[in-house]
Amino acid sequence: MARKTDAHEKPPPSKDFTLDRRKAFPALIGDPSDVLFIAGLAGTAKDVADICGKRNNYFALAGVMGGAVSMGLGLALAQPKRRVIVATGDGELIMNVGSLAVCGVMNPPNLAIVCVDNGHYGETGYQKSHTSQGVDLEQIAMGSGIRITRTVNNEGQIVEAARLLRQSNGVSFILLRVAPTPPPSLKRDLDAGRAKDAFRTSLLGA
């Protein structure tokens, strides 16, 4: 049974989880063409695939839950001249929050992490995740040594967060709080080998 909230405790935030991810995520990213993306499984894979279209500048997981941030770190260290953005969901990130600590220590100047936080495990039936029950991933990122962090709860906060994603000279973390509504609907090629080869051909020409 869940613990009851005591009267003296901070009440849960009331205006969270209202943005539409299908509008807020593209607005936060802007022009995707000059960025290298790693997307987590489920919702964020579709968010990223939708904005990238036929470009091959993204690699999206369809398993390996919890791996997106570490994969983005490896890519960012290998491609220091390119901006790397990791998009991951709250459920995925909560599985490997330690990877934020690794990013805090390494602090690559070209890595940005966007957590699309809808407070739920959308792919599996919208079970409540930890973040709609008091867990704050921005604070975990801050405590992990990531110095550039923001939470975006409304449209007015998108512009500054978008600038940080593009211009920060150190790893940045944006918590994009969105409503628990479906991501863009599209069919994906689930062959990771083909996706890897397409990404490398596009980036490295080999």
Partner: peptide, 22 residues
Amino acid sequence: SVPLATEEEGVALAAGAWLGGG
């Protein structure tokens, strides 16, 4: 020199590096 929090991160890290030619 990348100090991992848990070993599986190193697997994903290596795959990400390879994507970038590293």
